[in-house]
Amino acid sequence: MSYARIVWAHLQKDLRLEWRSKDAINGMLFFSLLVVVLFSFAFDPTMAVSRQIAGGILWVALLFASTTALNQTWTRELRHQVLDAQRMAPSPASALFLAKVLANFLFVTMIQVVLGPLFIIFYNLHALGQGWLMALVLPLGTLALVVNGTFFAALSLRTRNREMLLPLILFPVSIPALLAMVQSTTGILTGEFDPGLWMRMLAGYDIIFLTLCLLLFETILNAE
């Protein structure tokens, strides 16, 4: 079987599991919605300020929400020793990782599709910069969250209090990415500065960490 077909098989399985249970998407959706509502109580979302802070709130909400889903993404493999079966399978381990990343990427993107319009309504937003650039920033940012998130979720899978550990190791490494996402989003919304540098940085971050994760995933999967 070719590499692409293995990835596709893994991805199909993850999507089917999610389609039948809808655990991750429901949890993430409601969670991020709550964060957005809570933030609008914490900071008064009036017109002038909202454009400055909306980028930050959007990405922090997504970061928190994706942690809740990422914690489950590998735990479901623990039931019935599925993960041990995966380790013994002759297929490359990185294919398993890549499929998980793609699945999580799709889930978080779906959240954004619902959350985006809500955000525009709640915070009275319309972009003063080039709004279409968000179509680039959102996938790049999501990938940055999901790549490291999926990797660290696998890393903390067999540790004590894993739900606690994932954000503790994911957030510090994600700070440069978060900075780039928020800055490019704010740049687009306010139109005050060019988001190009930050988008390039985000793309670079994605490439560097995706490569690193693909190379090191097998080590993590077989650590004992």
């Binding site: 890393l155 067999r158 004590r160 503790l168």
Partner: peptide
């Protein structure tokens, strides 16, 4: 912290 939270080899 990771070193502290994990156990064994």
């Amino acid at each position: 912290l990771l070193r502290r939270f994990t156990a064994g080899g």
